[in-house]
Amino acid sequence: MFQNIGEILILFWRTLMALPQTLQHRRKVIDQLFEIGAASLLMACILSLFIGGVIALQSGPVLAERGLSSYIGGLVGLSMCKELAPVMMAVLIAGRIGSAMAAEIGSMRVYQEIDALRTMNIDPIRYLVLPRLVAISVSLPVLVVFSILVGWFGGAIVSMTNQQIAVPLQSYFSNLSEMVELDDVANGLIKSFVFAVVIGIVSCHQGLQTIGGPRGIGRSVTKAVVNSIVLILILDYFVTRFLLYFEK
């Protein structure tokens, strides 16, 4: 395990050192941005609509019983932007994109494509890892912005249509804008950036470590997804603790 952590940190460091060459690889970055961002947007929005809805559905009646239903907008707003959107989007992207990264790089390793790159003096980290890491670090926070907005909207629909809650749209958004500050959204975006780096590096590392044939690729994909999700959930706690220091 410690060897893996060490290798991941070295890979991260080497990718950071290659960052100034991002412009040279802009075509690959754009391809990856489309792959990660555009292809996941619809699924992210559907998921977020229902997450926002279910928070309102669960907490709305409890608040209403205590005469606090006017706070539903703030509750959904804060839950979405500080916790649920970054974590749920990270889990979605780990499953959808982390697995694809590990499979693609793993297959390139097994079928000697990475060896071929190295014989041509093309650094696999610059050619494969850098564009993926840059693209996921940009696209995950963007997806989280969409997720937050759609999640708020999902909560608003449920709050308005559910008989037990029955909060009009205007009150919902008025309370939301009163309670949610720009810092709270920034909080979620910082988290999502950290999660994006974790997914990108863990998945690429797993792909580069692939040995064996198709079974090896399968193992790498599973490890990439499971390790990414475990790290996301553990880091979520520590990043939250860290960000709390900066809150007023």
Binding site: E104, S107, M108, Y111, Q112, E113, D115, A116
Partner: peptide, 14 residues
């Protein structure tokens, strides 16, 4: 300038 022709070809499939 070195080059290697792999037995499998090792072309980049993408």
């Amino acid at each position: 300038r070195l080059a290697m022709v792999f037995q499998s070809g090792a072309l980049l499939n993408s």
